[in-house]
Design a protein around this nucleic acid. Structure first.
Lengths: 208, 208
DNA sequence: TAACCTACCAAACACTTGTTAGGGAAGGAG
DNA sequence: CTCCTTCCCTAACAAGTGTTTGGTAGGTTA
């Protein structure tokens, strides 16, 4: 659980998270499009219609914006994942629910997901972003556990390397963020359905 | 076909590509680890045991290094892809061969593939890197065509969105570059085999 | 020896980067 | 009206950026 890190900011504003969220959404979009390092604070300010220095009224630093975007995304993701994992579903149903929730999350937080995909790997080495690797470990535990339960219950194949299967399923789902566009031809649920069909049944034509 | 872009460099060196390739390999590794924009020429020079300015004896610019790395990778990739596509195989065999060649390419050019994954999207907008989107279009044509042939020949399922299937297969293969490490437990061929098994047959247990 | 080429270093350049300090316009509260 | 808070601007800063210029040690060729 990422401790939301940025404990306090500026004064004791009573109802602050108004313009703040707006600016975070803008920053997230620029980060996702250009990459974190290639994004200058001046570009963010441009997109927000203000000057670079003005951003520092709302945020402590460029890095704290990234931090807030990523931890906010992970907080919401885990709220939904935990609900699924605590529902007492069978392994196949759990996997289906996790995949569906993942696509919903991509639909809602596309920019944050894209940033996470691109930057989390080398951000994880920095101590301030240690919660990224914690989350990733928890993530692996949840998915791997589900797959192993499925193998034990004979609903998933036993002749595959489980860790390879895990990476296969995980990547399959999350890279979709690189091409998915909200409001496109397929809803998140429709994409989840087809992806699950491919992952579970394969794309080859079986005679049944 | 990326025109190799960097037409001439420096004098008319007879046997130059000795230290050059070495430096490119080093640069590729740093680019892959830190991201292109986060990589300074001084870091590359450090890794090579020399000073930043000295790199400019071998290369015109930081961008030309990236260009050479990416176009070199794509040239080799397409040499192998074209061989597969021209072999007159059936759709399923073509797909298997493409996947296998892809994993082999990841094994050989891991750094270049990782860079391509991370940077190609926003590099494609720059005119100098237009060959990246050309390659991507050719790529889509080859894979989509193979899938459609397979559907027509009734070896692939017809009830799936073909474009979705394409992205599914493409992504599952290439994101492997984010976790694959040469010399690990599985050879590229072994990974290809298991991936193909998952993609074609699914991970669910079927009664047969 | 002299001329030459290769591969690097040393030092600086113009520019961009994230960040800060001080100020000021707008509007509500007293 | 005055005070205060919110939100932004102006202007600058120090550090870091990619790149250039001139030089030089060491080997090869003549």
């Amino acid at each position: 659980m990422p401790k939301s890190s940025n404990s306090d900011h500026k004064k004791t504003t009573v109802n602050p998270p108004e313009r703040r969220e707006e600016l975070l959404a803008i920053a997230a979009e620029v980060f996702a499009a250009q990459g974190y390092n290639a994004t200058t604070v001046r570009k963010i300010a441009d997109a927000a219609g203000m000057l670079a220095g003005s951003l520092y009224y709302h945020f402590d630093s460029k890095e704290s914006m990234l931090d807030e975007i990523l931890s906010g995304f992970l907080d919401e993701l885990w709220a939904r994942y935990d609900a699924v994992l605590g529902a007492g579903l069978g392994p196949r149903e759990t996997l289906e629910a996790l995949v569906t929730e993942s696509f919903r999350e991509i639909d809602r937080h596309l920019a944050a997901v894209a940033i996470y995909q691109k930057e989390s790997k080398h951000l994880g080495t920095r101590p301030h972003f240690a919660y990224l690797v914690e989350s990733q470990q928890k993530f692996e535990k949840a998915w791997l556990g589900t797959l192993e339960r499925g193998v034990a219950a004979k609903v998933f194949r036993a002749d595959l390397d489980v860790r390879l299967t895990y990476r296969f399923v995980r990547d399959t789902v999350w890279v979709a963020a690189s091409w998915y566009r909200p409001g496109g031809r397929h809803s998140p649920e429709e994409i989840a359905r087809q992806y699950l069909s491919m992952v579970l049944e394969g794309i080859a034509l079986h005679d049944s």
